[in-house]
């Protein structure tokens, strides 16, 4: 059996990302972990927001459910986060399915759907803030264990282990994403995105498939939330249920190309270093830009500008637009050479 091109690309990328840490210093390793982490979350968002076209502005709900479930299970019951993250995924999938049912069943679409997802995320944040058994607004802190522990997924000395975990997670998420895209489920989701009435007329149970897309996306996102809790060592409702997570999750796939398998990863490869360098830049700007020194939020401002540019010039994201640009360039070059030969013929 031949291995399809998607999996060949995945194998190649895996190799590259397996080798990269060998040449990375601690700062670069942190950057790489962040990059893979956002690519992972973007891949999760893409299944719902990209493939199925159901724009979610509330992925922090799933993220927070994952972060809190694994952490509470670990802190209160001593259950390993390796297990807890799947429990969180299950909860998030259920929450996502319920949210999907409540919105899709009543025909909430487009902008209104995006707002509804935002409302669900805010609701979950407020509920978390008012729940004493998860320590309300104070949040939860991972214990300091003074070393590395694979069974507890806490690595205080060796960052590389987090890198290995998130790389593994990204590979699995990408395989799921590829499988969906190349099979019936993916075709049905794309059909729903393109025209729901036409999809229904061809026998697609649109409600059912949209809910499936939300549930899968939610489950993968929740595991990313668990990873965040393990790596960061601290969670509170504003941090993991906050709107900034929802925005950050959708930025990479939209910039890279939502609806494309590699969109989230490409987006993360471009945006993550840009975000980090902006932060560094603002910390210590050159003389003539000294007014920017220490202004928090400049990276967010930059992201705003990027989104505007994406929406105007490349609605299909990088993955979708680059081939179009190349084609246009090719045509222009060919056009020029044709007119040149016509000139010569005269």
């Amino acid at each position: 059996m031949t291995i399809s091109r998607d999996y060949q690309i995945l194998a190649g990328l895996t190799l590259v990302f397996a080798i990269l840490p060998l040449f990375a210093n601690q700062f670069q390793l942190t950057l790489l972990i962040t990059l893979l982490y956002w690519a992972y979350l973007g891949t999760a968002w893409n299944i719902m927001g990209g493939y199925a076209g159901q724009f979610s502005f509330g992925h922090s709900a799933f993220f927070g459910i994952g972060a809190y479930t694994s952490t509470v299970l670990f802190l209160n019951y001593g259950i390993s986060p390796w297990l807890g993250m799947f429990v969180g995924a299950g909860f998030a999938a259920l929450f996502g399915a319920a949210m999907g049912f409540l919105t899709f069943r009543f025909g909430v679409k487009g902008h209104f759907f995006a707002l509804a997802t935002f409302a669900f995320a805010e609701m979950s944040r407020l509920i978390a803030q008012d729940s004493d058994f998860i320590n309300s607004t104070i949040g939860l802190t991972m214990p300091i264990i003074g070393g590395d522990s694979w069974s507890q997924m806490i690595f205080e000395d060796t960052k590389l282990y987090y890198y290995i975990v998130i790389l593994g997670m990204l590979i699995v998420a990408t395989m799921i994403s590829i499988w969906i895209y190349r099979n019936k489920l993916g075709y049905y989701l794309l059909a729903i995105r393109e025209d729901e009435d036409a999809a229904a007329a061809l026998g697609v149970d649109t409600l059912r498939y949209k809910i499936i897309a939300v549930a899968i996306s939610a489950a993968i996102t929740a595991i990313g939330g668990s990873f965040f809790a393990q790596r960061f060592g601290f969670i509170d409702p504003a941090l993991v249920f906050g709107v900034s997570i929802s925005i950050a999750v959708l930025l990479r796939p939209i910039f890279g190309g939502s609806g494309a398998i590699w969109g989230p990863l490409v987006g993360a490869i471009f945006l993550t270093p840009m975000e980090e360098f902006t932060k560094i830049f603002v910390r210590n700007p050159p003389e003539f830009l000294s007014f920017m020194k220490g202004r928090a939020g400049f990276d967010v401002l930059l992201f705003g500008v990027i989104i505007i540019i994406v929406v105007i010039y490349m609605p299909d994201g990088l993955v979708g637009s680059i081939p179009q640009w190349l084609e246009r360039l090719r045509r222009r070059l060919r056009g020029q050479s044709q007119s040149a030969t016509q000139e010569a013929a005269r």
Binding site: L190, A191, E194, D195, D197, A198, A199, A201, G259
Partner: peptide
């Protein structure tokens, strides 16, 4: 459909 509904991007 009278007004055709292709899945335009596919």
């Amino acid at each position: 459909f009278q007004i055709v509904k292709p899945f335009a991007a596919l």
